[in-house]
Amino acid sequence: MTSTNATAPAKLPAGDIPWNHYRMQKKLSDHIVDVIIWLLLAAIVVIITYPIWFILIASVSDQNAVNLGKVTLLPVGFNWDGYREIFADTRIWDGYRNTIVYSVVGTALNMLVTLPAAFALSRKELGKVRRVVLFFFSLTMFVSGGMIPTYLLFKSLGLVDNWLVFILPSAVNVYNLIIARSFFETAVPEELFDSAKVDGMSYGGYFLKIVLPLSSAVIAVVALYYFVAHWNEFFTGLMYINDDSRKPLQNVLQAILLSNQTGAEGSASLDAAAQQELADKIKYGVIFVSSLPLLVIYPFLQKYFNKGVLLGAVKG
């Protein structure tokens, strides 16, 4: 008599296919496609990362070798002369300090203004009013007062040679506002607001206690956009800041680069080649020094960045 206690293989739910079974079922054409995909991904990684790597190795290489095309994957004639010259200038530490302050304080103010405004514009209760407000916001992306009227306005407000010129005029970026509004409008279920309203929660409580905790992705994206914009700020310091102690990093690096370039052009013939080589090293070093903090920060925000861009830009 056949035993009925024999253990039968467990059945997987529909749609759950073991990975080993899936690998056994793959055909030769599937393996070829996988190889092509991996090669394309590797090529994209190389295309993106090689320029950064080249700038790094060129900044510590002999510039004659760089000019002759001998520097490709590894440094040639390794030395730190360019970075030594950059960091020997005390102005760079003032520039780093200023840029960090402007970026952190500016980003905090940006988020404090942008997120509530985006949430308000995402609410359907405002009706046609929100479209009118958004239209005037969007109009500033295409129409501006011009350089001279803007300078006169900032001067009359006391923002010339004032560090607040980096903070207040850029308190809201309309592009980031639209991204955040689209996210709140499409990614946060309206049923959550209905439940909150039943519990007697106000709009402010709903925004702070429910919407913001669910919006970490778009918050990271918008914050990164704002931080990068503040970190790369160059034109504002060039136009409105005359005091060297208040200039951001980008303006300081430009001053260091120009001073060394001018020194190379005005030096005697015997020293001209050496001065020019040092100026070229500083040129590459300046690019890497200004980009390094962002390269360090971005990997920690990458997963939020990718998710936030996809969720926040689905609908306009």
Rank of each mutant, 00 (worst) to 15 (best):
M1I: 06
T4E: 02
A8G: 01
A8R: 06
P9I: 07
P9Y: 03
P9C: 03
P9T: 06
G15T: 03
W19M: 13
W19E: 15
N20W: 12
H21Q: 14
R23F: 10
M24I: 10
K26V: 06
K27T: 15
L28E: 12
I32H: 01
I36F: 14
L39E: 03
V46K: 12
I52S: 05
I55S: 09
I57E: 03
D62R: 11
Q63T: 06
N64T: 15
A65H: 08
V66E: 02
L68A: 14
T72V: 15
L73F: 15
V76I: 13
G77D: 02
E85G: 00
E85M: 03
A88R: 12
A88V: 05
T90P: 00
D94A: 13
D94W: 07
Y96K: 08
N98W: 04
Y102G: 04
S103I: 11
S103R: 09
G106D: 03
A108I: 15
A108M: 13
A108H: 05
L109H: 04
M111T: 04
A118T: 04
A118E: 05
L121P: 08
S122N: 06
K124G: 07
E125K: 13
R131C: 00
V132A: 14
V133C: 02
F135Y: 10
F136C: 07
F136R: 08
L139V: 14
L139F: 15
T140E: 13
M141S: 10
M141P: 07
V143R: 03
G158L: 07
G158S: 08
L159W: 09
N162H: 09
W163P: 15
L164H: 10
S170F: 09
A171E: 01
V174M: 01
V174A: 01
Y175Q: 08
L177D: 03
A180M: 08
R181F: 06
A196G: 11
V198N: 07
M201N: 07
G204P: 01
Y206D: 11
Y206H: 13
K209N: 11
L212D: 05
L212R: 05
L214S: 13
S216C: 04
Y225S: 09
V228C: 02
V228S: 12
H230C: 02
W231Y: 07
N232Y: 01
N232T: 04
E233F: 05
F234D: 04
T236N: 09
G237C: 03
G237L: 02
I241K: 07
S245W: 01
S245G: 03
K247T: 05
P248N: 08
P248M: 05
L249C: 09
L249A: 08
V252H: 01
L253Q: 04
Q254K: 09
L257C: 06
S259C: 00
N260V: 04
Q261F: 14
Q261T: 11
T262S: 11
E265G: 00
A272N: 10
A272E: 14
Q276F: 15
E277F: 13
E277G: 10
Y284V: 02
V289D: 02
S290W: 02
S290N: 10
S291T: 15
L294S: 01
L295Y: 11
L295R: 04
V296W: 05
I297K: 02
Y298T: 13
Q302W: 06
K303Y: 00
K303T: 07
K303W: 00
Y304G: 02
F305D: 00
F305Y: 12
G308S: 10
L311N: 10
G312S: 11
G316M: 06
